[in-house]
Amino acid sequence: MIQFDHVTFRYENADEPALCDVSLRIEEGSFVAIVGHNGSGKSTLAKHINGLLLPSSGTVTVCGLQTNLEENILPIRQQVGMAFQNPDNQLVTTIVEEDVAFGPENLGIEPNEIRSRVDEALASVGMTNYAEKAVHHLSGGQKQRIAIAGILALKPRILVLDEATAMLDPSGRKELIDTVKSLHKTGMTVLMVTQYMEETTECDRIVVMNHGKVVCDDTPKAVFSEVELLAESNLVPPETVKVRNALRELGYSIPDSVLNAEQLAEAVCPLL
């Protein structure tokens, strides 16, 4: 569904490439987290998926279409919805439902269809009651959910979230992650760039970036057992994994598959 072949990308005037010979394959229907420290290249990678950035060398292919061909960009962007960190840069109108309808209207979709898409999208981000509210009265977290509703209204096959939860409160974040998980269950391919390791434990795969390279690409269980690799990449494992590792040092034998509080309690209680 998404394929990176030896992609190198250099920003203008940059000394080092932001992406360095990245090859990656993402299957349809997968749920992939991309993690790495600030400046590791993870957002640059995400922006290649809908052709916002084009490789300096190598190719990116999305749904069979190469991003470096001008005529492919529009069809690719109809398949790839992208949400960014700062919602203030993503909203275009003054009323919530108008904002969500903005994309479908531009595609010339029938008004009845737009109405149902807007209602459905607002429901899936938990903002139905805000449909007629003014955008500028919403908090940062609420704006972000509207931005995501605007993407869902376009019915993309691939959803790319570039640190979209960074500004949300715990319930907003949980709601968004739950929304993303349910979208994934209906078949959506999801790529999630995030700084929050807790959000990645239920993904199929975690891609770890460092200095523009993919340094690890594996299941959460495997990635979070690579203590040294995480430290070298300036990352810290989820809190529960930190506790798990500290308890091991106290002599408790806890398997690598333990990634959340429930699993940890399940593993450690019989040992007490």
């Binding site: 506790v243 309690a265 399940e266």
Partner: peptide, 19 residues
Amino acid sequence: GLSVPNVTKICTEMNKRGI
């Protein structure tokens, strides 16, 4: 609409399991 620290969650889960 808030949550608790991860460590608190671990304690809650342990209490549920009789510890």
